[in-house]
Design a protein around this nucleic acid. Sequence first.
DNA 1: CTTGATAGTTGATCTAGTCAAGGATAGATA
DNA 2: TATCTATCCTTGACTAGATCAACTATCAAG
Lengths: 144, 144
Amino acid sequence: MTVAETKTPAHAEAAWQILWELMLKQRTRFVEAVAQLDLTPVQAIVLRRLDPHRPTPMHEIADMLRCDASNVTGIVDRLEARGAVERRADPSDRRVKALVLTRSGRTLRRRALEKMGEPPPEIASLSRADLQTLHGILSRATSR
Amino acid sequence: MTVAETKTPAHAEAAWQILWELMLKQRTRFVEAVAQLDLTPVQAIVLRRLDPHRPTPMHEIADMLRCDASNVTGIVDRLEARGAVERRADPSDRRVKALVLTRSGRTLRRRALEKMGEPPPEIASLSRADLQTLHGILSRATSR
DNA sequence: CTTGATAGTTGATCTAGTCAAGGATAGATA
DNA sequence: TATCTATCCTTGACTAGATCAACTATCAAG
């Protein structure tokens, strides 16, 4: 071997480094925020994923979380126990159980979305110009 | 009350929204990446935090994770069981146990850092100019 | 109608997390 | 010095998230 292959440009690594740092900080912030609604992080993520206007098959949740289906059973059990969601049999395919938000589940979801949508001080303190630029770059990054 | 207080500008929320989306995606990516080293996410985060040149008191880990001290006991137990770290009594304060990376622990840490440092495709595919701009904005955001 | 894939549950087992209680040490103060 | 108080860590009990293996029910194709 002659020269080490720099697979990723230094600029990408530098930007990623800071982004990583920021994400790590947000992790604990997120946990604490949803805990105020008596939600665990995963419960909040699942709630966020549920469409208030469309029953959601459980396997879609497993796909999103990239976890085993049996894991979803437990998570949904707890959400159902607290009255946020209901399992509903899908008439067109009786294997699937689709999740439907209850009335209180919709309220809970809305409140959770509000909390998650609140930008952290790091972001909120940026200038308007920076925010617009950031938005543009991130859109480009995630849409590619 | 007259008009609803818009505490956060719309621009901040928009940018935060995309950032959130990105972070959510990186979560599963991170889990899968460190799993290749037989590390759980928390173990990787702890490993990353350990300074190879300085024994680290356990309570610093608890502070970083914002969790109960008893939780750290278990996490360190498992890292110690696999030979990555050692508990060392602090001579100046015999209450504290400081963590020291073993030889193989240092290797493991280096490999974990490499994995974590690898930017995701979303970031890696950005142009050099975007990356520099992004770096600048994020630096401003996190240093404030 | 068999065969095979898919959807979800159950049970066992692990890790991460909390809380309450306790032991050991350090530091301040009466 | 004796005691009180705070800090550092551990233990035990318990909950949640996650994996895996085994199982039921259903669908869909041949």
